[in-house]
């Protein structure tokens, strides 16, 4: 198994994703990449738009949900998506400077990121989390 990645896991009504990474910022990046993959997001070529946001939360789970919901908000309201998610995490704070492109198509949207059984766990190979999405 690679050191960082994501895979879809079964959930009756909605979508779920297992993500793993050696550190927090990579875990957050993998979760957002996994969300892009689940949605079948395709972006247009051309000019990129710089997007910057800062978030803080009292624990990793809250910060992860906030971050992913922020990405969904840009998708729905500004109609832009991101190919990569190089975020910086410092304790309870997340700083993101992302480059967005207009959406070409989305196969199936995610409507919200849930806290359902969400725990960021530390294992032998790094961090792992399981996310359930409302679709």
């Amino acid at each position: 198994m690679s050191k960082a990645g994501f895979e879809e896991v079964q959930h009756t009504a909605d979508w779920a994703l297992r993500v793993w990474a050696p550190n927090r910022s990579e875990l957050f990046r993998q979760a957002a990449l996994g969300m892009n993959a689940l949605m079948g997001l395709r972006l247009q070529d051309g000019a990129e738009q710089r997007v910057e946001f800062h978030l803080s939360a009292e624990d990793d789970e809250s910060l992860l949900v906030s971050f992913l919901n922020e990405v969904l908000f840009y998708l729905e309201i500004d109609r832009i998506g991101f190919e990569d998610f190089p975020v910086k995490l410092n304790n309870s704070r997340l700083d993101a400077e992302l480059w967005g492109k207009p959406i070409r198509s989305i196969e199936k949207p995610i409507k919200a990121v849930t806290f359902h059984n969400l725990v960021v766990r530390r294992g032998e190979d790094g961090l792992e989390a399981r996310l359930v999405f409302d679709v």
Partner: peptide
């Protein structure tokens, strides 16, 4: 069926 947190 299974939801998140609370069952559907």
């Amino acid at each position: 069926h299974q939801g998140y947190g609370f069952p559907i």
